[in-house]
Design a protein around this nucleic acid. Structure first.
Ligand SMILES: [Mn+2]
Ligand SMILES: [Mn+2]
Ligand SMILES: [Zn+2]
Ligand SMILES: [Zn+2]
Lengths: 138, 138
DNA sequence: ATATTAATAGATAATATTTTTCCTTAAAGA
DNA sequence: TCTTTAAGGAAAAATATTATCTATTAATAT
């Protein structure tokens, strides 16, 4: 019995095929998809699944601490099954959102406490630029 | 003739009382208001102004480079007449959004270029924590 | 295996935010 | 003052997300 099964059981949540598929898909991809993108990606395997189920499931996964929400400045949210605090970069030309690998900014929370009276818990860091693909198309 | 008048003239835009008031209000406040909050704040002086005008105006101001948009993870946008790249902190208890004064993170763009093939232009940095007011209420 | 029960999927309606449309008004310049 | 054209306001439309409601199904016990 794996972690996921145990966690769902602990919270009296049912591990349905839809939930399992959505989480597995988020774990498998580095594309930081929106709800709509998840819905489209899973449609071939789950043609009857509704978009509302995607929204409800990602919310559940977030509450479980299995997924985090990203806000890159679009009119929708994106989701990431990597729940560690890590920076992202957005291509302002094609809209893709990538992780920035190996860059560590965990010291930022402590560093900023010297400049504010807040108790600082976490941060979100989004870079904006032009991805290699879009640089080529100039 | 001030800068604002000149800039609007250059772009063939009209400097209406509504636009002037919205920009002046954004310049005057540190609260990073949403469109709705701007609308409510100016309602006493501009009781006939519509919310659509607020939305249209902030969009215009952004295109002029006079205002920037923030995405702290709410279901709406906030606006800031300080267009310099600077970090913000969000109170997860009461929702207020503050500047972090004096903290300089301008080196981040260059630093991160070592970890990605993107051409990096700018970034947005949001901290999350508990503000002094809300710390007292525990 | 079957029955029981409570949670969830899916359909749909509702809500919230933002944008668009369309017509009237008014800013800017002559 | 007159003309031109951008912009305001009201309302509808478009998007994204959430809530409601009923049938289904996962989980557990028998
Ligand atoms: Mn990521
Ligand atoms: Mn600010
Ligand atoms: Zn790109
Ligand atoms: Zn607070």
């Amino acid at each position: 019995m794996d972690n996921l099964t145990a966690l769902f059981k602990e919270k009296n949540l049912k591990l349905t095929p839809q939930r399992y598929a959505i989480y597995k898909y988020l774990k498998s991809t580095k594309s930081h998809p929106s709800a709509e993108m998840i819905y489209e990606a899973l449609r071939p395997d789950f043609p009857t699944m509704s978009l509302a189920t995607v929204y409800k499931t990602v919310k559940t996964l977030i509450e479980l601490g299995l997924v985090q929400e990203l806000n890159v400045g679009e009119d929708n949210f994106r989701f990431d099954a990597n729940v560690d605090t890590h920076p992202h970069i957005v291509c302002t030309s094609c809209g893709r959102v990538d992780d920035i690998e190996d860059a560590v900014f965990e010291h930022l929370n402590e560093e900023v406490e010297n400049y504010t009276n807040y108790k600082v818990n976490t941060h979100k860091l989004y870079f904006y630029g032009v991805c290699p693909n879009c640089q080529g198309e100039l």
